[in-house]
Design a protein around this nucleic acid. Sequence first.
DNA 1: AAGTGGTCTAGACCACTTT
DNA 2: AAGTGGTCTAGACCACTTC
Lengths: 252, 252
Amino acid sequence: MSQSSHNPNAAAGPSPTFSPLYQQIKALITQSLQSGEWKPGELIPSEVELAARFKVSQGTVRKAIDELAAENLVSRRQGKGTFVSTHNEARAHFRFLRLVPDEGVPHHPDSKIVEVKRMRAPAEVARSLELKSGDAVVFIKRVLSFDGAPIIVEELWLPGLLFKGLTAERLDEYKGPMYGLFESEFGTRMIRATEKLRAVCADAAAAAFLGIAAGTPLLCAERVSYTYGDKAVELRRGLYLTEHHHYLNELS
Amino acid sequence: MSQSSHNPNAAAGPSPTFSPLYQQIKALITQSLQSGEWKPGELIPSEVELAARFKVSQGTVRKAIDELAAENLVSRRQGKGTFVSTHNEARAHFRFLRLVPDEGVPHHPDSKIVEVKRMRAPAEVARSLELKSGDAVVFIKRVLSFDGAPIIVEELWLPGLLFKGLTAERLDEYKGPMYGLFESEFGTRMIRATEKLRAVCADAAAAAFLGIAAGTPLLCAERVSYTYGDKAVELRRGLYLTEHHHYLNELS
DNA sequence: AAGTGGTCTAGACCACTTT
DNA sequence: AAGTGGTCTAGACCACTTC
């Protein structure tokens, strides 16, 4: 098969928005990921199968999957196949949580739920989540402890429509990271986030939760998480005690 | 040419450490970058030329360059060629400086040098820069202002051997980011860094430089920068006033 | 042995830039 | 028109995993 015989861009007439074949294949694969045809942790069809399905060469499928792997949507394992990425694996636990101890190896913190409630989105939350002010949201507040010491207090807001049966009990029962619960129980997978970091002073409430004096400097991390299609689905504001921990960032 | 005829891994006997051809090509290209055969901002030979030089196919050179481009060591421009990356271009100004205003578009801050001196490396600095305690280092202290307001006070340490003629005058004269000066005047190009972020209280000295009250919370960013070969060549400690700015981080 | 992803090649054509 | 990187194909073989 020649390239032009299957590339619609090669049709007669000007092609206003050129899009390479492998990008179109990538979009099709992403759709199947988003629709749940292949679920987190599962094996997707082999490159040969996908090439046959889409009637393109294996090399084109390869390039599409290469980009999906670079974006952490799938992960390739030689000899086994290509798997849909999941937050329910040790490797992914520190992808979004960048706070690590100054000394020693990082490990997963204990989570203690303080509050879960449904409410109407305040204006600021609605803006971040691309909702209308007053739309239903789920509010969660919790404290995270490393080695028994409370280090993080965080509040988060989720669109009410996507997280209908979310209760404190289900959060407490779930072992592993919260994003794993969101993905396996609610079908919403976080794939990307942006964080804004600031230094603030602990107010009385935060100080009480963390067992420190009011006024202690805290690292404030405001995160907006996105799922497929760049849709915002979480606003989270965490206060990190950085006396014996730090936020680690790799610049490249 | 067949693959095996030029791949030393295919020689008789077991290959203990398999290394793909394109990785070897990538290493050769990186050597030429490091040695200064092609300088920052310059055009490197075309893929066809490099394929001929290394006696491999263009596709193999392509894959090597793809990875170098992904690591920001070079940048490709269709129709023009492949260029060595440089800090002396607007695009690179915010690669390492992640502090942006809460409102409005970011732009390059003004730098005011406070102090430049030569000294012996304190133990902590020596450890970060992989020097011996007491080795010569250059110490720089400066204040960065956005729109006339001082927002950052930072101190940095560089290996004395690599930055022999560095003076306050040369720093003051230079237009553009400090990394651009390092790269064009001292032949040391920063290609990667790790940062540790913490919240701290402003001490009297920092408060004076930033025109704020002592005790104001500041974001402390401790950065170690690396050049080719993962060699540490800079330790930098910045204090960021985050009342109207924030540290922006993309998680993916 | 069979199937998977990983590497390498050779050749064609496309899009973009410069001459 | 010529040269560059960008896309696509087809086929070969390698490394790894499973049966």
